[in-house]
């Protein structure tokens, strides 16, 4: 078995041998279907049954009347949402933060995983890995608190250092429009980049070591090994994660942003999620929140479908 020639690019293993009756095809895979059963049951019960609540978006939902009893209002909530003066501002803020986290945070997790993978000393590797995953366990409330201690103009550590070194004035990190997005992305990287490497490390762990040996026999440098062995072997995971990421493009860490928002940075910081929380959920306006959520879902779904098509065009398997 060990001498078997394993190719990294996926091979199409099998085409259906017989095109017999449909039932026979299903019967042949009865075990596979049986394996799926608990999962399918879960998805139907807990994911599809509640979906009928989405009609809330087209009703004036009142908890005491129930979903069926509440009055239909058509697209009223959507009109309110698209019609508000700040809609495009929110749209822009959400898109920009989504974009930054996709083009900055996402690649950083990959790069960090690759760098960690290059550490040869097993002990050191584990040690560093353990350190970088710790912040994931601190809640945003704590991280917002730590950010404040570092960045406030009233004796914040970083501002004290700036004042000490340059003699200049304190920088208003927390109450400025310019610093808001960098801060959010930095917090995100700090909290979750280490955690995000785990999935890639798991993929890297699956790479057949023989491939490296073969590459080295051919005299490939480390860069070339990275390019020709490591990356191809985690490519499909990267593609899948990227597609899924697009689906949640408009879902930003609500709690994180909410805690960092204030009067001064709101014009760049308010995103769909924080807006909905403030005006919708906190006030018990379920229909309106559902309508905004539905809009986000549709956008995410379109992005995912497009990305999946694109991936297939490039010969990747995609999600479905």
């Amino acid at each position: 078995m060990s001498t078997m020639n394993v190719s990294v690019t996926k091979t199409n293993v099998k085409t259906a041998t017989s095109r017999g009756s449909r039932f026979r095809g299903l019967w042949k895979y009865r075990w596979l279907y049986a394996f799926m059963l608990p999962g399918l049951l879960y998805f139907i019960l807990f994911r599809y049954v509640p979906l009928w609540g989405l009609i809330m978006a087209f009703k004036n939902y009142q908890p005491h009347l129930g979903l069926m009893g509440s009055e239909w209002v058509g697209f009223k909530h959507f009109e309110r949402f698209f019609g508000m003066p700040e809609f495009w501002q929110l749209f822009r803020n959400t898109m920009l933060l989504g974009l930054y986290s996709t083009v900055i945070y996402f690649p950083i997790t990959i790069i960090m995983a690759l760098l960690l993978n290059e550490i040869r000393n097993e002990m050191y590797k584990r040690f560093v890995q353990t350190l970088v995953y710790v912040p994931h366990f601190l809640s945003w409330v704590v991280i917002a608190g730590i950010s404040y201690v570092l960045l406030t103009t009233e004796g914040g550590l970083i501002n004290e250092a700036i004042k000490g070194m340059t003699g200049g004035a304190a920088v208003e990190f927390l109450t400025s429009t310019e610093w808001f997005r960098p801060l959010i992305i930095l917090q995100l990287i700090w909290k979750d980049a280490g955690w995000g490497t785990i999935i890639f490390l798991a993929a890297l762990a699956g790479v057949n070591t023989q491939l490296y040996e073969a590459a080295r026999m051919d005299g490939a440098s480390r860069i070339r090994q990275l390019w020709h062995v490591t990356l191809p072997s985690i490519r499909s995971v990267i593609v899948i994660l990227f597609i899924l990421r697009l689906g949640s493009f408009l879902d930003l860490g609500f709690e994180q942003i909410f805690l960092m928002l204030n009067a001064i940075n709101r014009e760049v910081g308010e995103v769909f999620d924080t807006y909905v929380y403030r005006v919708g959920l906190q006030q018990g306006q379920f229909s309106y929140s559902t309508a905004v959520g539905l809009f986000k879902s549709v956008v995410g779904f379109i992005l995912v479908i497009l990305a999946n098509k694109l991936a297939k065009l490039f010969g990747e398997e995609g999600i479905y």
Binding site: M36, G53, L294, S297, Y320
Partner: peptide, 28 residues
């Protein structure tokens, strides 16, 4: 993960769909 499994693509799409569309608090 069986590429030949009938209905596989449909089920995957169905799963993917639930990632984006959620019924919300009260129906759940």
């Amino acid at each position: 993960s069986y590429k030949v499994l009938p209905g596989r693509s449909g089920i995957m799409l169905m799963v993917l769909f639930t990632m984006l569309f959620q019924g919300g608090l009260i129906p759940s």
